[in-house]
Structures are given as structure tokens and as C-alpha cells.
């Protein structure tokens, strides 16, 4: 379970999050919605250990992210969290295989095991036939599926997706949402940041943020 306790995040010109409390159960598919500047991306970065809150703490079960050293936090991200971003953030000069392989290399997984893990994930997102293609040569939907394969390759229990369909057409967006739904079906905790109500409607729970505070929390 992910527990957010009294999280605040201030920047020089604004306060992105204001003493926010949140609990997200394991294996759920949760959407965090809100308008631009509502603090949802800041919340996702803090949940992913990419940013530190000004005050408050984030717990994964009983483990506090704020009490971890930089080295521990890096290892935690590698093993426990998969990231999917709107802009994909693939390395353009790497092949699809090399992009998906990166988290395993960082996690010091032996080469022989890596091959089967990468190919399994690429097959799951339907991109095994493109494994030797450069990331820069892929279409938007293929890039996002590659990013999803990369997020899943270490088999993390939590997937944080920041507007994953924001740069995609309706068809590819639907495919990505199906993949995220499938991940939740496999027992992963998927947290989706979006401002698209249709995408949010496909999740189990919608948390609405406004001005850095939770104003609505609906479970279906």
C-alpha cells in the first residue's frame, strides 16, 4: 500500500501540493486528475522518488522514501517502480531492445536472463518483431508501448504513468490504456496521471486534485 502523509511541496513562486493525504491499495488502477498546475505531476514525481516534498512523507508499505539514502532510493526505483511518460523518454539512438534492457542493466541482471525478460515484455506489447529497430524510427504508439515494456521489464509492483496517452491518437491511446489495465489485472498498482476524463473513467478510482489539494476521491 502506498501512503502519502501530509505532503507539501513549495517552489519559489508557488505551492504545488498542500498537506495532501492519500492511500492507494495494492493492485488497484487509480487515476489522478486535475487541471494544469493542480499538482498532479508533482505528486507523481514525489511518489516516484524523483522529487522530495517540502514536508510530509511517502510510505511504500512501511518504508519511507524520505528516509532512504540516494543509493537506496535509486535501487528502490529500479526494483519497485516503473515509469511511463507522455513524451516516452526513450533513448533515440538505442534500439527497442536496448531501451527495454536498460533497467535490467542498471539492476545488474545477468545478460542471459535479460534476453528472455526483454523478449517476454516486447512480446507482451506486440513489438518483438521491432526489437532491432532504432527507437527514433518508431511511431508514437510503438514508442509508448516500448516505454511500457521498459517500465514492466523489472516486474515492479508499482507503475506510475504521467499522461501516457497525451501524445497519441485515439487508437493508440486505447491500446496503451488496455496495456495499463492488463498490468493492474496482473496485481500491479497502476497510478495514472491524466486530464482526460475518458481515460480516467477506465480506472477503479479517480482522485481529483485542485490547487495542490485532493478535492474529490471516487472509487467504482
Amino acid at each position: 500500500m502506498i501512503t502519502v502523509k501530509q505532503i507539501s511541496r513549495s517552489y519559489p513562486h508557488c505551492e504545488a501540493l498542500k498537506e495532501t493525504d492519500l492511500q492507494i491499495q495494492d493492485g488497484t488502477f487509480t487515476a489522478i486528475v486535475g487541471r494544469s498546475g493542480s499538482g498532479k505531476s508533482t505528486l507523481l514525481r514525489i511518489l516516484g522518488g524523483l522529487d522530495s516534498p517540502t514536508s510530509g512523507e511517502v510510505f511504500y508499505d512501511d518504508i519511507s522514501l524520505q528516509k532512504m539514502s540516494e543509493v537506496q532510493l535509486a535501487a528502490f526505483r529500479n526494483q519497485h517502480i516503473g515509469f511511463v511518460f507522455q513524451q516516452f523518454f526513450l533513448e533515440p539512438q538505442y534500439t527497442v531492445y536496448q531501451n527495454v534492457e536498460m533497467p535490467l542493466i542498471i539492476g545488474a541482471v545477468p545478460k542471459r536472463e535479460r534476453r528472455s525478460l526483454v523478449e517476454k515484455q516486447l512480446a507482451a506489447v506486440g513489438l518483438l518483431h521491432k526489437k532491432n529497430a532504432l527507437a527514433s524510427s518508431l511511431s508514437g504508439g510503438e514508442k509508448q508501448r516500448t516505454a511500457i515494456a521498459r517500465a514492466m521489464v523489472c516486474d515492479p509492483p508499482v507503475i506510475l504513468a504521467d499522461e501516457p496517452c497525451g501524445s497519441l491518437d485515439t487508437e493508440n491511446g486505447a491500446i496503451v490504456m488496455q496495456l495499463l489495465r492488463a498490468m493492474a489485472g496482473q496485481g500491479k498498482t497502476v497510478i495514472l496521471i491524466t486530464h482526460n476524463r475518458e481515460d480516467a473513467a477506465k480506472t477503479d478510482r479517480i482522485i481529483t486534485l485542485e490547487d495542490g489539494q485532493v478535492i474529490d476521491d471516487a472509487t467504482f
Partner: peptide
């Protein structure tokens, strides 16, 4: 990117 993916 590498740091996001868990590299020190």
C-alpha cells in the same frame, strides 16, 4: 533517464 530507471 538512467537515474529515473534506478541508476546512481
Amino acid at each position: 533517464l538512467c537515474c529515473f530507471l534506478g541508476a546512481e
